[in-house]
Design a protein around this nucleic acid. Structure first.
Lengths: 279, 279
DNA sequence: AAGCTTTACGCGATACGTAACAATA
DNA sequence: TATTGTTACGTATCGCGTAAAGCTT
């Protein structure tokens, strides 16, 4: 039995589609289909009824889904516990891509693992599933069930084609943003959720012209002048060389917090980034 | 993660030897060594200290051993539960090799799985581990913690080289057995345990000249005249064509019992062999 | 035709077994 | 020298991705 197959199966059930699950898992759809077949022949029972518009979970399939989640969680816990027994006290840190590339490199974490996910809710989920010891999330998505310590706050920055001639502004108001085409990552995505929510709460009428999936080159669309986009400041730091204007956005902040299951784990992470700041 | 590797790891720890574990698992010793290396690199921690006279479990290794047992058990349980959800109510039946070849073929069990192990204690263990729903064991090894139903009893039969000229006897007394060389399977083995125990309790001095591992051709040694051996009557039925004498042994009986965790499972097995007797 | 899954097939990685090697008592 | 574990290497199987082919709506 292969635990990766069970993990894949869980994703299939949650996405209600083999195709979508394959995308999320970054494997081809036929490969995933065969994993599923493998599970069904392993257990000698039909798990999912395939329809032309996705899949339908059978009774046995639902049972396996629940049991598999528990099994995977237990397996992840074993791994984490063994890591903790390692003399290096290695931790697995879950974080957003931007944190991994722009913030974590400030610290010496070579004895630890970094686990990247695209949005905060997934990071909290990974913590609950014992896939990671600690997660660095956008405080906005914190739900109170874990211990937390805020690390830093920052503004969002708009990436704007030069041709819009907004480069001289110190801050971009939502009034102006309303007037230009806006390109966002497609959901689920922290920035997407926060912008949508902010617009809704302040009756701002956004002119969203394009949704770009993760991994696509969002900035390319901005460079080509198709519209502006909004990203956390941390990300914009690496984009200074691009021929676009970077302007902070009014009234929209981001606080990155470390969350964990216990204060002990949280503190050992805080010690880590306290002690090991490079400069 | 591969659950088979964890299962192998459990066997290594229990056998305290990679070589012995490889024999029990029927894979080559280097292959098992590599599985172990795979686990250690998966968890990035040393599990076993290798010495020239076996292995020595580290702290982390002991922790993994306990956790792995629980994980494997949970995984087996999932499999059994899914089997039960199958419309055929497929069961997995654990039994001794002799039962699988001589008794079970009397019933139509094609919708069920048969899981063969070499001795009753292992079968009870598999039941506790959820590897099987029901086990057919030698009643002698029943420890009272499971529900049980006796199925049949039989005598043991000695396989004797013709040259000993004992073919005319109706029953072989232990007095006579003492006088001849005896060949047994090496421990662990039900027959071995029972004969040793019977000899000890009745102050019989056996002249055991050879131990043959499972899988070796015990009967070959008898045919060549090196000594006699003793097997359950069920096994001896398939040996009538051999040029040896088959004589029942005095004072030694065997009762095969079905054991299960619950009466429900036990009864569904009993129904099965009630209904489906071929003749 | 569009959207989903399955089948076919070639390729690379993985895992096995055999054989040779190393280490220790 | 016997016992135990490791390394090396050839081979077979497994699992992936690409491409093409069913199925329903």
């Amino acid at each position: 039995m292969n635990l990766e197959w069970l993990q894949s199966y869980i994703v299939i059930v949650e996405e209600k589609s083999i195709t979508k699950a394959a995308e999320r898992l970054n494997i081809s759809q036929p490969a995933l289909s065969k994993q599923l077949k493998g599970l069904e022949s392993e257990y000698n029972i039909l798990l999912l009824n395939r329809t032309t518009k996705g899949i339908e979970v059978t009774k046995a399939g639902f049972h396996l889904y629940n049991q598999a989640k528990s099994l995977i969680q237990q397996s992840n816990l074993i791994k984490l516990e063994l890591q903790e027994m390692n003399e290096s006290h290695k931790m697995t840190i879950g974080c957003l891509p931007s944190i991994a590339t722009s913030y974590l490199p400030n610290f010496n974490l070579k004895n630890h693992c970094v686990f990247i996910q695209n949005y905060s809710k997934a990071l909290i989920h990974s913590l609950e599933n014992n896939q990671v010891n600690i997660s660095l999330i956008d405080n906005y998505f914190y739900d109170g069930s874990l211990v937390k310590k805020d690390l830093f706050s920052e503004k969002y920055v708009a990436l704007i084609p030069k041709k819009y001639n907004l480069g001289q502004l110190n801050e971009l108001s939502w009034k102006i943003i309303e007037e230009y085409p806006l390109i966002l990552h497609s959901s689920p995505c922290d920035t997407y959720s926060k912008i949508k929510s902010h617009a809704y709460n302040n009756t701002i009428n956004l002119n969203i012209t394009k949704y770009v999936p993760f991994g696509d080159f969002l900035y390319g669309y901005v460079l080509s002048g198709e519209g502006m986009t909004i990203v956390p400041q941390l990300i914009s730091q690496n984009l200074r060389h691009l021929d676009i204007d970077l302007i902070p956005v009014e009234d929209l902040e981001l606080t990155i917090s470390a969350v964990a299951k216990t204060n002990k784990i949280l503190n050992s992470f805080l010690d880590l980034i306290q002690d090991e700041v490079i400069k």
